[in-house]
Amino acid sequence: MSDRPADALRPYVRYIDKTRSYYLSQGYAKPYAWAHNEDAPFTPLTKPLSASTLTIISTSEIAIKDDPRFADDAETKAVGHVYAVPSDTPASRLYSRTQSYDRYATTLDDANAYFPLDRLHEAAARGRIGRVASQCLGVYNAYSQRKTCERDAPVVLGQCRAMGVDVALLVPV
């Protein structure tokens, strides 16, 4: 029995330790090193959310059911690949191919639990946001920080700019 009160906050999972041991178990020679930043860049919003275009960017390996573009793992699972998912896809047609979720505690059966596309459309319908961008983006987790920053992030940025995205919601899985 725990002496922790029933309403106490759960302790945080120590993912840094677990990620290190995971990558070692997968045959990577060097322990994974997370980026460590003391400060952060910051861009204030320039217009109200009700006039803004938003998108979701996800590392959940999100895919569309019965869509041939996602049938070929060799093409879509290239590490570091950035790809688009049309935002008019109902979340019921979306699924995740990732293995890196807590399979002992939950499932990825409901895309809105990690890729809240239906909820974002509802926010647009209510007028809380201006609109959902034409595409959401998937990004594969890369082992290399340099590849993430120098190869993948600029692609994400370019696609956001092309779609006129004002605010991006990034959801790591």
């Binding site: 930043n37 952060a40 910051f42 960017i57 993430t148 992030a153 994400v156 940025l157 004002d166």
Partner: peptide, 12 residues
């Protein structure tokens, strides 16, 4: 890291 790059380039 992607957040930081996108934000630094002007998108919140």
């Amino acid at each position: 890291l992607v957040c930081r790059v996108v934000e630094e380039a002007g998108i919140p």
